[in-house]
Design a protein around this nucleic acid. Sequence first.
DNA 1: CTTGACAATAAACGAATGTTCATTTAATAT
DNA 2: ATATTAAATGAACATTCGTTTATTGTCAAG
Lengths: 186, 186
Amino acid sequence: MRRKDDGKRDSIKKAVVQVILEQGMHAASVSKIAKAAGVSPATVYVYYESKDDMLRDIYIEYAENIYKVLLNHLSIDMPGDIFIDRFVREYYQYIIEYEEVFHFVEQFGGCPLSHGCHILKGPERLNDILMQYQRLGVLNNYDIKNIWAMLLYPVKAVVKDSKNSESTSQKQLDEMIMIIQKALLK
Amino acid sequence: MRRKDDGKRDSIKKAVVQVILEQGMHAASVSKIAKAAGVSPATVYVYYESKDDMLRDIYIEYAENIYKVLLNHLSIDMPGDIFIDRFVREYYQYIIEYEEVFHFVEQFGGCPLSHGCHILKGPERLNDILMQYQRLGVLNNYDIKNIWAMLLYPVKAVVKDSKNSESTSQKQLDEMIMIIQKALLK
DNA sequence: CTTGACAATAAACGAATGTTCATTTAATAT
DNA sequence: ATATTAAATGAACATTCGTTTATTGTCAAG
């Protein structure tokens, strides 16, 4: 039996996020995606049941990704301030480096097609680390959702600013990290 | 000569944000929007040159809106902690109350069609107030963009959480306000 | 080798897309 | 009253949409 070409599935995945970044969700048709992937539109339906299914699948695959990246660079052994510094910097770098992926996840996440795709914000392991820092008296005992909010959301603003102003964004990120540290550390 | 029916322009505007909230950007066609507005598809082109133009126009009209609302409830006379409390609560309430508008602005803002629609984040007057609080030694002298980031972005996370958990969101918002106050006030 | 299973595609599908146009409707000015 | 103007629209435009089908190509098991 002939085997499915994993490279082809990957091409399609990459084409999806690329086309959506360049043209927007409303213009990301199966044909355009297929062309960008170097594949026939019909081939898409070998790998996915429908367009909606494809978007949902890719969303789920990518949405958890950032947490794995963060986990690879973080551990409970770090002092609290270093932990926050690393956390925020890694998240910032991820957004910059995987711009297409991040944009797709943000865009698709706020669209009715994604309702039902339940993505846990901050998977178990990372959540545990945060709560352990709280038990150790390093992090303030805020609602864990608020901890997540402070660690993730302000950085998005810094990224957006960096796309408009270009040069001063490094200093802005450094300052933001300090603000977050002051807010979360005991 | 027959006059333009301003109610019709408004119907279209409302239909745009409503359809996009319910069906997503990629499914918001001119026909669906027209139907939701109780209008012929051709009528849309009496008021707007093209679909893209329509979306851009409505985006610009709505994007500045939140800042006007905030200005109406804020003044330099308040103590710093009250100012932040009001600011964040008004923003939160705006997102909840005008869910469709907020969703449309967020969604369209992250789509290539909006590149070029220059929306100033935080119009002059509100920016002045923030900087005056800094000169008065009430707010920390952080980059004004970081002040904006802290005032706007974490609240978005709280709203998202509130859509999943329902009940505990009031306490979460109260706590978030305290965190922001501690972070920004001297 | 042969054969069978499945990947891959070109071609075609009806439905829907954004937009235009000829026409009708209704408000104003004469 | 009536002519004038532009709003409003239904019907049609070419194009593109997402998807299916029929056919071909290719690899792995027997």
